[in-house]
Write a protein that binds this DNA or RNA. Structure first.
Lengths: 156, 156
DNA sequence: TCAAATTCTTAATCTAAATTAAGTTTTTTG
DNA sequence: CAAAAAACTTAATTTAGATTAAGAATTTGA
């Protein structure tokens, strides 16, 4: 269990490589993301203080996600199979809950509704990342997010 | 740890209720799903033999999902916090992996691509559920799935 | 500090999938 | 087995969000 400091921009995991580690964020902000065939970025998860960020594949399979730091951060580097121990069960369950909510919203909610959910759930992160990143997390384009925000103002 | 038989159509969990149980499927097929504001159904997960189906919220919070049997099934009823023990870690990790893939696909893949992924990943389930359910799982309408399948045939 | 890069906004156009609607096939059940 | 219900198909129309493009604002870094 190693404690390391990483500068903004540091890449902790690349797509396709094997990685037996997950990252417990002490301070700062990580993100995990994918690139699609067109090279478009889709943020899978933000990792602020207290979160564990890692690829949800077994340690013997190639990673599906890139992980990097979007703020200077301090993280504990933990072996993936800590997941199998009781200690990290809480962080684990939290991840499952967030993913469940995300799948539900991606399937059943409009872009505006997903935005408003994000706004409520992560008020802290909102101000720490670019709109481009928020759009990427929501599964829409930055242009669509810009339009959506303007329309929401009109209605309120 | 109770072993029960449930008939097709049996409801194991309703939205909004408290439920401290998860269901380990011995035989048959369960599903979990949500209803949106318009009453439209969105299948969150299928649970064939070997799977654990449950709501990924802590036992003290109201459930986000309905769970029912879509085939006559035999299931073990387990307390949710078995999740915190080593025993179920594998099923747990599997669920996380599936959810990760689902989020990625919902964000970055077209309906056709999601269909083809489903086809490959769950060839067994394909023939056991209606197209309406597959559409619901993919996040599209049954009409769109029907059209999509026809177009895919032309190309092959 | 100021030039370059990146991000953000706005608007026009396009497209994948939703909606609506009607007819057909399959399944269920009395 | 026949009627009713549910599922499936097809096609026309609509729409949310993508794409493209261009200019404005903000951030970065030499």
């Amino acid at each position: 269990m190693k404690r390391i400091k990483v500068k903004k921009g540091t890449v902790l995991q690349e797509f396709g490589e094997l990685n037996t580690k997950v990252y417990h964020v002490v301070s700062g902000l990580l993100r995990s993301y994918t690139l699609d065939q067109k090279g478009k970025e889709h943020i899978f998860m933000f990792g602020p203080e207290g979160w564990v960020v890692g690829d949800n594949v077994t340690p013997d399979l190639p990673c599906e996600l890139y992980i990097d730091a979007i703020e200077d951060s301090v993280v504990y580097v933990l072996p993936k199979d800590v997941n199998r121990e009781n200690k990290n069960a809480a962080a684990f369950i939290k991840r499952l809950g967030v993913l469940q909510k995300r799948v539900i919203l991606l399937m059943s909610a409009s872009a505006i509704e997903r935005y408003e959910h994000f706004e409520k759930t992560y008020p802290d992160i909102m101000s720490r990342v670019t709109q481009k990143m928020i759009a990427s997390y929501l599964g829409i384009t930055p242009e669509a997010l810009s339009t959506l925000k303007k329309e929401r103002l009109k209605k309120k």
